[in-house]
Design a protein around this nucleic acid. Sequence first.
DNA 1: CTGTTAGCGCCTTCAA
DNA 2: TTGAAGGCGCTAACAG
Lengths: 328, 328
Amino acid sequence: MKVTSKQIAEICGVTRGTVDRALHNRPGIHAATRDKILKVAAELGYRPHFLAQSLVKGRTKTLGVILFDIHNRIFAQLYHSFEAEARRRGYVVYLVLSNKDKELEIQYINSLLDRQVDGIAITPVNFGTEFASLLAKAQAPVVTFGNRVSADIPFVWIDDRQAIAESVRHIYAKGYRSLIYVSPPLRLKGKQNIGTPEQRHLGLLDACGELGDLRATVVTDRDFVPAVVRALEETEGKPAVLCSSDVYALEIVREFKQRNIRVPGQAGVMGFDNIDTLQYVDPPLATVDYNVDEIGRLAAELLIRRIEGQVIPPRTNVPHRIVDRESL
Amino acid sequence: MKVTSKQIAEICGVTRGTVDRALHNRPGIHAATRDKILKVAAELGYRPHFLAQSLVKGRTKTLGVILFDIHNRIFAQLYHSFEAEARRRGYVVYLVLSNKDKELEIQYINSLLDRQVDGIAITPVNFGTEFASLLAKAQAPVVTFGNRVSADIPFVWIDDRQAIAESVRHIYAKGYRSLIYVSPPLRLKGKQNIGTPEQRHLGLLDACGELGDLRATVVTDRDFVPAVVRALEETEGKPAVLCSSDVYALEIVREFKQRNIRVPGQAGVMGFDNIDTLQYVDPPLATVDYNVDEIGRLAAELLIRRIEGQVIPPRTNVPHRIVDRESL
DNA sequence: CTGTTAGCGCCTTCAA
DNA sequence: TTGAAGGCGCTAACAG
C-alpha cells in the first residue's frame, strides 16, 4: 500500500540514492532519469515517510503547545492563530492540556520532548528555578506566554502591570474613589505559577500608591461572588469592581442583576481580556483589550525563528488598550 | 546529551538486545543483569527515542483532530474532552484547523497520514463519494463528528433531526403559530459539507408537516440579522425565531434589543448548543442542550478502540434535551 | 552522473 | 541467558 523510495528505485532500475536526489531536486543527476523517477513517484502516489525522515534529520517540523485548558476563549483564539502561523511555516502542532495540574504539565513536557518536537510553547503552571532549569535543559527551545518562568525563557504577552495600572487610573478618572479588585488566582501564590495575576496585582498597587485617595479591597476568594457582595456592602460610596479577567466580571454582573444592584448605578464593573461574550451582555462591560491573535502568531513565529537558529528577544509585549463601556 | 540504548549497552558490557529485554521487562534475562541495566538507565535518565520506536513498530500513539476552528465554544469543549480521553489511553493529539477550507482540509489529512497518526477524528468540510473513499482508503481509521461523510465512516454526534423537530413542537406547544428558522449554512448546500444544518432542516420540515398550522420562514442569508428583522416585519402575529446555533441567537437578541423589540414579548428566540455565554445574557435563552464532553470523549474512545482492532458502531448518538427559558 | 555504504535508534528473530 | 544480524525508510558522504 504505502510506496517507498526503495520500490521506486527498483522500478526505475536505479538506487535509493538516485531517487533521493530526484525527489529533493538536488544537483548531480541526469535530467532524464530525474524526470522518469518523478513521474513514477507521482504515478505511484509516493509520499515520503515522515518518521524515517525525521529520525535521520533530527527535526520533526512539529511543535507542542501546552495550555491549561481552552475554556477561556482567549486561549482558544491564541491557539488558532498559533496554529495558523505554524502551518504557514510548515509545522504541525500537538495541543495538550495541563488542566493546571503541575504533575501532568511536567509529564507532557517530557512526552513532547520524547516525541522530538522541535519546540514548545507553554502557559506554565509550574514555576521556580527547578522548573526553569528543566526548560532550559530541554533539547528543544521553549517560549512562554501567560505566565513567565524566568528572565531567559522568552515570554510573549502584554504588559499586565501597566494595563491594570491604567485601568485603575481610568476608573479613578471617572470619579470612583473606592475599588474592589477581584483576582481569585492570587490565593494560589506560592502554589502555582500565577505570574499574570501577580503582575496585575502589582499594577493595582502602583496605581493606588500614586493616587492617594483611592481605597482598594482585594478579593481573592475562590468563591469570589459572595465575597464581592460583602465587600460592596461594607463600602461607603459607589465602588468600581475591577476584575482581573472578564469571566469574573460576567459572574459578578449576573449576581448583581439578581440582587437588583444596578450597574453602573450602584457599582461600576470592569473586566480584562475583551472576550466576545461581552458584546452580548447588558450593560456592555468596560475591559482591557489586546490582540490575542497577535500573541499567538508571535509566539509561533518567535519559537520557529529560535528553532531555526535566530536569536529572539526574551520579552515581547503586545499593546493593550482600555475599553470604556457603559458598565463604568 | 540524549542517552541511547546503545550507550547503556556499552556501559553495562552487554548488547542492545539485552538492554531491550531489560527495558521491556521481557523474559530471557538474568535478574541481576536486568537490574543493573535498569539502574544504569535510570541514572542516566534514559528515555526511549519515540520516533525510532514508532518507525519500527508502525504505531505512533498519536491521533489527529481536524476542526473548522475553535471559535465556537462547542468545539473547544469537545477537543478538551477528546484530548483528556486520548491521554488516559496513552495517546497525544495533533490539533489542526481547516478554517472550513476544503483544500486545506485535504492537505492536512495527508499531512497527518504522512506523520503516521494512528487515527483521525474530523468535522469534515468536504463531502461526497470521492472524499469518502479518500478517507476509506486512508492508512488510519477515521471517525467523524459534526458532519457525516458516509454510512460506513463512524459518526458520533446527536440526533439533530429529532432535536429540531422536538424544538419546533416545543415552540408550537407554547402557542406560537409562526416560526422564523435561521440557518445560514444552508445556503452552502452542494458547496460544503453541511450535514448538521441539513439534518436540522429536515427536522424542521418533519415537524412542520406534522403540525399543519405552523407557518415557517427559513432564513439562510449570510447576513442573517437584517433578514430576520425583515421576516419579523412581514409576519402576522408573534413568531418564534429558532436558530440552528446559539451564536446566531445571540446576534439576533442583540439586534432586537437595539431595536427595542421585546423578547419574548414581541418575538420568541431559541438557540441550539447551550453554550455558556447564554448564562450571562438577558433574557436567558431557550436552547437545546447535549453533552459535548461526552461526544469528545466517545469519539476518542471509539477511534482508539477501532485502532486497537475492535469493531465500533457506524453511528453513535448522544442524548439531547430541550431547555426552556424565558426567551420563549 | 550514479552506486555503495553507513548510519539515525530501536526492535525482533535466529543462533549460540 | 545472551549475542549477532537484519531491517523499519530515509539521508548523506564517499567512491566510482
